[in-house]
């Protein structure tokens, strides 16, 4: 099994909650099933894992705006974890690397200490492609 280790790599570009939820679900499900998981946060995605962004409500895609309050309410009733909690759980159960895009950090003036504690490395596209090679890659 481990000789042929499966790999899932996610490029998280989007910064709206409707796209970030599946990031948490895919990363944690894959990590639990023994996949090596790489999560590369860039642009709006990276913006959503600053400590400041994580304190407040994260925006929802304009197309789904009307469903926002109902969805939040249902998630509360279902006791469903926030996507960042799922990502933290993914790191607990499996092999998960969270990478922050250095260019985006410079672009938005984000410092390492501004980012969520679950970020492992700051790197660029070459590092990501190298890690992702041979596995499944999704652009979210």
């Amino acid at each position: 099994m481990s000789e042929n280790k499966k790999k899932l790599s996610l490029i998280v570009f989007s910064g709206t909650i409707d796209k970030l939820m599946p990031v948490g679900i895919l990363a944690s499900g894959a990590a639990a099933a023994g996949y090596e998981v790489n999560v590369f946060f860039t642009f709006w995605g990276l913006n959503s894992i600053t400590k400041k962004a994580m304190e407040g409500m994260q925006p929802i895609d304009k197309n789904y705006e009307q469903f926002g309050p109902v969805m939040m309410q249902r998630m509360k009733e279902m006791n469903f974890p926030m996507w960042t909690q799922l990502l933290e759980q993914a790191k607990e159960v499996g092999e998960v690397k969270v990478i922050a895009c250095s260019t985006t950090m410079e672009f938005f003036g984000i410092k390492r200490e501004d980012l969520a504690p679950f970020v492992d490395d700051i790197a660029g596209v070459a590092t990501f492609l190298d890690r992702a090679e041979g596995g499944i890659t999704l652009f979210i």
Binding site: G29, M78, V93
Partner: peptide, 14 residues
């Protein structure tokens, strides 16, 4: 019980 995907798998792995 009462957990939804990916909860059961995550908790099983733990």
């Amino acid at each position: 019980k009462g957990l939804y995907c990916p909860g059961p798998v995550l908790e099983t792995a733990k």
